[in-house]
Nucleic acid binder design. Structure first.
Lengths: 219, 219, 219, 219
DNA sequence: GATGAATGAGCCTTCATTCAT
DNA sequence: GATGAATGAAGGCTCATTCAT
């Protein structure tokens, strides 16, 4: 009845619509949280930001709680996809891979004011709600695990006298701390400077694998 | 009846000095934010937490906005006082001083779940409100400045090939990132582990000044 | 079930047009102010009076302030419409017109306890708020202007020795004073008595145009 | 002990103090109502206005309700005292007396922005509270009664064809309406103009007793 | 007498959610 | 699918009143 076969457009559009709408609303949520903060973001802000009607969010996400959970899930997934893809396409060798991982953390796609602002707002607030904690914990574990493995490989390969776990935890903290600096103090910290700082540390810690320009061609 | 003669303790009941009440309320605010999150903290929570009546907060702080600002100011001041005192009482020599600074960041007084939770909740949310930003920006600048100076001294003294600014920014980020890890993932990160991780980095970066047990006696 | 086919009456239940709701709420406001006074009228009173929920007033008027301003505007407009219509439909001749104007001031539609009570409550309180003052000032000027013109015509036509401006101002004051008397002392003053009193004055002042029964047929 | 006989000051001062304080507070109430309006006047405003502490008003008047009632009573009494004194000191003859009465209504002591503003605010709001109504009704009755008597005398004396009751009610209304005009529209109406307008009416109505300059010397 | 910290009821307002259309 | 008027619970805030000092 509703034009099933008219080209292959209509049914597809209908079908897509649902996902498209959810996507629009999640984007609007991120934008609002980045601009107004978590506490000040209302359902109306989200609906308005998406250019849709007021009741629409409850229609697609049932409740604000669930919209927020989905938004956090979406951001976690995007973050994870980004570093996994960087790892997958990196040149072989632990130095290359660690470098790829570190650089991916400063990719404009994940590392920009809007995303970082929403990211911390959501995570810090989620802190108080057990349900949310689980959403962002999982991907973090995997990220840290990858760093530990690479540090271990580098230590073995370079004969460094250091503990892989400690180095990995420190690097992980430094990366997250850099995001915070970029968010809180954009005048002083930037994606470029953050990367340079981390690079400096890698050069000091793994001198046989890194220079300030990045990984050395050691394989 | 309630301790009639014990010195002159009585005023605790109905009339307490304005400063005492404000202190109580700020503590209750921190506790509530740590437990419930920023968005879920209400004036009633704070009043109840302090064991006082509902109208009391507006009486002493005029508005929620101002209570929050005062709380942030209070926490910033406490944080700054802590590291300044550590620096002041440290043994002479840049390594000793940097170590004192780093250790102070993991003092139980400033580095504990309650304080960290409120700290990030307040700062991240403050992010959206220009007025609040200024409150926490100032002390941060001073802290980073102190680290830069010490890094410069160490580099000069040890003849290291590194950039003081980059190292300082990285260390600063790592310290803040550690707090985040302790907050978000207390099962994996702790004050002790955080300090050990940072120590590992100092050992790698300034090998002539630090071992994994701390600063070497170089002066 | 609730009148399924009776024309298309249904929308009255859940969704009423914005204008209809605003009208309902303004009426409820007038009623409440008349009954309880300005200071004692709460948003809840208005909502209850309209048989609607609590949040409804802010939904349609944004704030109490704006509801009150709209109510004042509504009453001013109704008052002005009333005398303008009376003037428009009056028989020709200044006496007939002045009489129509005076009589219109005692029309039951504008001159009744409920309306007068709200009218003065709103105007007197509005006195302290510059924004409101403007709302009721404009129509008053027009009313007074109309009286001045008619007095001038009568003086010219009857050869009276009097000043039109003074007479107009006095008549205007008397009319408003009558409303106050009707409001404050209904046992002594009524619409009928008020009109009779004014009529007596017109008879004394414009004896060639008025008798105690009203305007004389002079054209 | 408290210096009973030291001159005769202290005891007197103590004694007076009570009445003095009440007077101060009533004056502050009038000032605040005139400036802020009835609804916006708080106990704190009154206390601050009198330069006294917060709890003081309840101390001297028990409740806000009673403070307001006393203020209204005070103003009614002052108003009545003013016209009674005018009547008492007027030259003999009904025209002289009526003129004295009318003039007294435009005396600066009772007819000024501050007093009029508080007067109407209090009376109009009192309208909704039966207790208050009685306070201001009584003096009004007396005032109107005095006017009726004088009108009757003038009519008898001048052989006018008019009804004393109607004329009195109209004059009373006009006088009160003039106050309203002076309050609401000070740019157009003033004490001087108000008196001139009323004078014009008296001249028209009682031509054998009044000219535009006031009462004629007819006795 | 006087003070002002403290109380708590009640107000205005916001906002997530519902639901008739 | 989508809209947006309507709901009502909950929050921040004001303010008359109380009372220990």
């Amino acid at each position: 009845m509703t034009g099933i076969d008219q080209k292959t457009d209509k049914p597809a559009r209908r079908k897509a619509s649902k996902e498209v709408r959810r996507g629009q609303l999640i984007e609007a949520t991120i934008t609002s949280i980045a601009a107004r903060g978590f506490a000040a973001t209302t359902m109306a802000d989200v609906a308005d930001g998406a250019g849709l009607s007021r009741g629409i969010v409850n229609f697609h996400f049932e409740s604000k709680e669930k919209l927020l959970a989905e938004t956090l899930r979406f951001m976690s997934a995007a973050y994870e996809a980004n570093w996994r893809e960087a790892l997958r396409t990196a040149a072989p060798g632990p130095a290359q891979k660690l470098w790829a991982l570190v650089k991916s953390d400063f990719d404009r796609s994940v590392c920009n004011q809007r995303t970082i602002a929403a990211w911390f707002a959501l995570r810090v607030e989620a802190q108080s709600r057990p349900t949310y904690r689980r959403i962002s914990r999982r991907p973090d574990d995997a990220f840290l695990g990858a760093i530990v493995d690479l540090c271990r490989d580098l230590i073995a390969d370079g004969g460094y006298d250091a503990d892989a776990g400690k180095l990995a935890a420190g690097l992980d903290a430094m990366l997250e701390g850099m995001w915070l600096s970029i968010l809180m103090d954009p005048d002083r910290m930037s994606r470029r400077r953050g990367l340079a700082s981390v690079s400096q540390y890698l050069t000091c810690v793994f001198p046989r694998h890194f220079s300030n320009e990045g990984p050395l061609d050691t394989n």
